[in-house]
Design a protein around this nucleic acid. Structure first.
Length: 475
DNA sequence: TGAAATGTTGGGGCG
DNA sequence: ACGCCCCAACATTTC
């Protein structure tokens, strides 16, 4: 009797190294499959930039699997029908997959597991996307963590995570029952092709993820403490999209740090950023309303003033605040924004502009190549002040001071807001204050070549604080 | 992982 | 020499 084949259902673990589901399935005949389900995620279906990334990541994974003898089958349809039907067609005893943590993936996996169970098959979900599974950590009162610092301390106290499992050298591929789809037939690439410039900045796929990790650890990681705050320099890891799609695992990152000098200085700060990712997933698992509802319920009454024209100005990078506009334009061109600038841009939107945080989150969701439901939702709630461990609402970033402090030489603003490039550093972050002859000399006409601020700096701050007082008074 | 307002201190200029 | 004032620098409080 021949061994029953296994179905390897790949979702957000698009790698062959340190892939516990692949490792478990590799002992016998295996059929790797990816299913594009356009409806299961509802409003959290992968956004435009994410789909671009996914297309190229699937290409890379398909090549790596084919090279090992088990080509990747691509399908489209309702997952809870496609997976059980495919398992039945090939007579698979078990389906192996990497565990995911978003609410809609939990519901979908339960439905698939139930359908498989009715057929006498089983779904095995493997840990590996996170350093620590969300239900394994509890605080002193036996509850999930709501505050980052004690959470991070608890994770660090656990010591090293398990070592990564190796990539299988050879796989015993199973002939799929049908042809499957060609990658282009999944329709993941945007039309019209607004992502044309993305390949200048990004290379999706496991090999590129590994290369980037090692380049970062060799080079910028040591000075990460300060380098990460300068958006005009290449001081961050830029690993976020690789981590989102599981081209790289968090424990590969962890062990990489340990092998490149350990967690001293900048590398320790970098690891704590990886722990923010863990914390966001911990929150999303235990508070599945995170993407939709403020964790602090009093914020349900916050008096946002939705204004489509203001939202558009922010999205298109014409708020009149140079550091914010530079960030929003970087987002559009690269599908990514430097984290320091994300905080400043998000703060302006929800505070000075009084726009709902979920409108900002929706825009990031569609335009970021690293769009991740846990990180995106938790970070927006952090900025808006409505998260459990958020920055207080009255902490309002001043885009002029942030620009002066972190883009002192103007390299970042001049790259993405070229119409201000000839302004001297002194006025670059507040063109509205520049003397008329300075503006003339730089070829800047406010309101014509570059917008005047959509809201006066002092008025924006005052309005935000007044809104907070209004909410408190309504209690 | 904020910024502004307010308070405190101490050195130096000056009559 | 002394007291007074100014103000920069730093600390604390407030939003």
């Amino acid at each position: 009797m021949t061994e029953a084949p296994t179905l390897l259902w790949l979702r957000q673990d698009l790698r062959v190294a340190d892939n516990p589901a692949l490792h478990a399935a590799a002992g016998g005949p295996v059929l790797p499959v990816f299913v594009l389900d356009e409806s299961a995620a509802g409003r959290w279906a992968t956004g435009g930039a994410g789909r671009w990334w996914l297309h190229h990541s699937l290409a890379a994974l398909g090549a790596a699997l084919a090279e090992r003898g088990a080509p990747l089958l691509l399908l489209r349809g309702d997952t809870h029908e496609v997976i059980p039907a495919l398992a039945a067609r090939i007579g698979a005893a078990a389906v192996h997959a990497g565990r995911q943590h978003a609410p809609w993936t939990r519901a979908r996996d339960e439905a698939v597991a139930e359908a498989l169970r009715r057929d006498g098959r089983s779904l095995h979900l493997h840990d590996g996307a996170l350093l620590i599974e969300p239900e394994r950590l509890r605080n002193g009162q036996g509850r999930p963590y709501a505050i980052y610092t004690p959470f991070a301390r608890a994770v660090m106290a656990l010591g090293d995570p398990p070592p990564p499992v190796p990539a299988p050298r050879r796989l015993h591929g199973v002939q799929p029952p049908g042809a499957g789809l060609a990658l282009d037939e999944l329709g993941l690439l945007p039309r019209p092709d607004w992502a044309a410039a993305f390949p200048d900045y990004w290379t999706p796929g496991e090999a590129a993820a590994q290369a980037r990790l090692h380049e970062f650890l060799e080079d910028a990681a040591g000075e990460y403490d300060t380098g990460r705050d300068i958006p005009g320099e290449d001081g961050t890891s830029r690993l976020s999209p690789h981590l989102h799609w599981g081209e790289l695992s968090a424990r590969q990152v962890w062990h990489g740090v340990m092998q490149h000098g350990g967690q001293q200085g900048g590398r320790g700060t970098f690891l704590r950023e990886i722990l923010w990712r863990e914390f966001s997933h911990h929150l999303l698992w235990h508070r599945p309303e995170l993407p939709e509802q403020p964790l602090r319920s009093d914020y349900a009454r916050f008096p946002y003033q939705p204004d489509h024209a203001l939202l558009r100005a922010w999205q298109q990078g014409r708020t009149g605040y140079p550091i914010v506009d530079a960030g929003m334009r970087q987002l559009w061109q690269h599908g990514w924004m430097h984290n320091r600038v994300r905080m400043v841009a998000a703060s302006l939107l929800v505070k000075q502009l009084l726009q709902p945080w979920w409108d900002g989150a929706a825009w990031f969701w569609d335009t970021l190549v690293d769009a991740d439901l846990a990180n995106n939702s938790a970070n927006w709630q952090w900025v808006a002040g409505c998260g459990t461990d958020a920055t207080p609402y009255f902490r309002i970033f001043n885009p002029v001071l942030q620009g002066r402090k972190f883009d002192a030489d103007g390299a970042y603003v001049r790259t993405f807001v070229p119409e201000l490039a000839r302004l001297p550093d002194r006025w670059l972050h507040e063109p509205w204050s520049a003397p008329a002859e300075v503006l003339r000399g730089a070829g800047v006409v406010l309101g014509r070549t570059y917008p005047a601020p959509v809201v006066e700096p002092e008025a924006g701050r005052a309005r935000a604080l007044a809104a907070l007082r209004g909410m408190k008074a309504a209690e």
